[in-house]
Design a protein around this nucleic acid. Structure first.
Lengths: 265, 265
DNA sequence: AGGTGTGAACCGGTTCACAGCG
DNA sequence: CGCTGTGAACCGGTTCACACCT
C-alpha cells in the first residue's frame, strides 16, 4: 500500500482476510455505541446498517472469527465487543510515538480517538529545537535526537509520521532501525521499508483527487452522449505538446473517442 | 465505503477501474517530481518504483487511459502528467468548503496539499459563534448559518467534514441538500447519503487499529505454535461472560483452538 | 534489444441462496 | 419461524508472460 514490499502478502495472518480486518474497527465502533445504549443483542441486519455494510458481508466477516452469534436471535453485543477487541489486539495498550508536531501533528495529538481505544501517545517528537519542551496536548515535545532512546524505553512498536514530505523517509528509517514495525504515514510520500514492517498511509490530497475524478464524471453524464466536452475542462489550450515520439498520425485513442482538446501543436 | 449506498457500484464511470483511479494520484505525484527534475521520459519500471507499485500493474493502469507510452522507450513525463491531470479532473479547479474548524480542521486548512493540485478552499465554516470571523490559514471563518449561501455562491460540489462525530451527519445532510455531491469525512461516523453522492472517509483510529492487529500477530509468530497466548493478551480475566444463550457445552470454536481466556463464569 | 500493451490465468473478496440450528 | 453460518457462483483486480512496436 505504500512501498515495494509493504502489506503482508502471503502471511495473511491466521486466515482472517485483510478486507475483513479493515472492517472490524467499523463493527467495533457500531457495537460500542450499542453497548453504551445498553442494547443487549443485534441482528446482522441491524449491525450491518449501523456499520454501513451489507449483512451478508458482515456475517461472512464474523464467521472468520468464529461462531459468535445465536441463530434465530443475533449477536450478543458485549460479547462481540470483547471478541473483536481481542482480535484486533486492543485488550493490550499500544504506546505510540508521533513524529512531526506541526499543525497536523498537533491536531492528531489533540485528537481523542487514540487514547480511547487501546492507544497511548507515549511521546511527541519534533526535529525543531524551538519546539522542544513546548507543551502540546498536555505533553512536552521531545527532540528528535532522543528518538531511539524514547522508542526503546517505552517499548514502542507503532509510529505516526506527520512530518513534511522531505523528512518522512529519514524519520521512517530511524523509527524502523529503533524497532518500530508499524507506521502510519501522513506525509505525502511513498515510504520504503524492509519486509516485516507495515505501513499505512493517509493522504488528504489523494482522497480529494479521487473525489474530483468522480465529480467530473457526474458533471458530464447527461449532456453529451457520454461524458467529454460539456464538463468544465474548457480550454486547456496548448498545455502539453505530445508524446515527443509518435509520428504525425492521429494515432492511439483514449478509451473514449480520441485524444480530446489537447494536442493542438 | 461509508454508507448504505455509497461508492458508485455499477456506474463504474467509463471503464476505468476504481482501483486504478485510486492509484492515479500516486502516479501523478511521482511524475510531478520527475517533471520538476526535468526528466523527460520514464520507463514503467522506474515510475512504478517511484510510486511504490509493480510495473505490470502500472502498465495495466495506463492502458485503461489509452496508449500513452512509446515502446522501447517509456512514457513522456510531461505528457503523462497532463493526461492524468485531465483524467482526474484537475485541469479545472475545485472550490471546496471545510466544515468544522477545530484542531483538525485548522490543520487541514493550513495544509498546502490542496491548493497545489486543483483545489481551492472557498470557505471555512464552523458552528461555534466564537469562531466566526477568526482568521485561520489566512481566511475568515464563517458561521454555519450561511452554509447554504456559501455553497451556492461559490458553486461548491466538494465538502470536507472535520466536525465532531455527533455533528457530522447533520452537517452532511445540509451539504448534500445545498448541492454538494462529494464528501471527504474525517469524523468517526458512518455517513448516510443519497445515491449519487460520494463519500470517502479518513479515519485515524481505524488505521491504527488495523496496524495493531498486524502488530499483535507479529509478536506471537515464533513463540508458541501459532499465535495466541504468548502475546500480551494477558489476563483479561472475567470481562465478558458469554453469549447469553448457548448451553453449557464448550461449544463453538474460533478458527484457532477454542475460545481463549474468556468465558470463565 | 528494449519496453509497452494486453489476453489469459489466477486470486481475494463479495454476493447469493439456502442448509442448519435455536 | 427467524437468523446465523457457509458452500458455491460471481466479479473486480492482480499477476503472468509474451506478442508487438520502435
Amino acid at each position: 500500500m505504500a512501498t515495494g514490499r509493504t502489506h503482508r502478502p502471503a502471511t495473511r495472518s491466521r486466515g482472517i482476510p485483510e478486507a475483513t480486518v479493515a472492517r472490524l474497527p467499523l463493527y467495533l465502533r457500531a457495537l460500542t455505541a450499542l453497548s453504551e445504549r445498553s442494547v443487549p443483542t443485534v441482528s446482522s441486519e441491524e449491525l450491518a446498517a449501523a456499520a454501513g455494510v451489507n449483512s451478508a458481508k458482515l456475517r461472512k466477516d464474523f464467521s472468520y472469527l468464529g461462531s459468535y452469534g445465536t441463530r434465530g436471535v443475533g449477536y450478543d453485543v458485549e460479547y462481540l465487543v470483547y471478541q473483536i477487541s481481542r482480535e484486533l489486539g486492543l485488550t493490550q495498550d499500544w504506546p505510540i510515538v508521533m513524529v512531526g508536531i506541526g499543525n497536523l501533528g498537533a491536531a492528531l495529538a489533540n485528537y481523542g480517538g487514540f487514547a480511547s481505544r487501546g492507544f497511548r501517545v507515549a511521546a511527541l517528537i519534533d526535529a525543531d529545537p524551538a519546539m522542544t519542551g513546548k507543551s502540546v496536548a498536555g505533553m512536552a515535545v521531545q527532540h528528535a535526537d532522543d528518538l531511539e532512546k524514547i522508542i526503546d524505553e517505552n517499548g514502542v512498536s507503532i509510529g505516526v509520521i506527520a512530518t513534511p514530505a522531505g523528512a518522512a523517509q529519514q524519520v521512517c528509517d530511524r523509527l524502523v532501525a529503533a524497532g518500530v514495525t508499524s507506521i502510519l504515514n501522513f506525509a505525502p510520500t511513498v515510504l520504503s521499508v524492509p519486509d516485516g514492517v507495515d505501513v499505512r498511509k493517509v493522504d488528504l490530497s489523494i482522497e480529494l483527487q479521487i473525489l474530483a475524478f468522480h465529480e467530473q464524471r457526474k458533471a458530464g453524464e447527461s449532456p453529451v452522449d457520454e461524458a467529454e466536452g460539456a464538463v468544465g475542462v474548457e480550454g486547456p489550450a496548448a498545455k502539453v505538446t505530445k508524446p515527443a515520439a509518435a509520428k504525425n498520425n492521429a494515432d492511439r485513442k483514449g478509451p473514449d473517442g480520441d485524444v480530446p482538446a489537447v494536442m493542438p501543436a
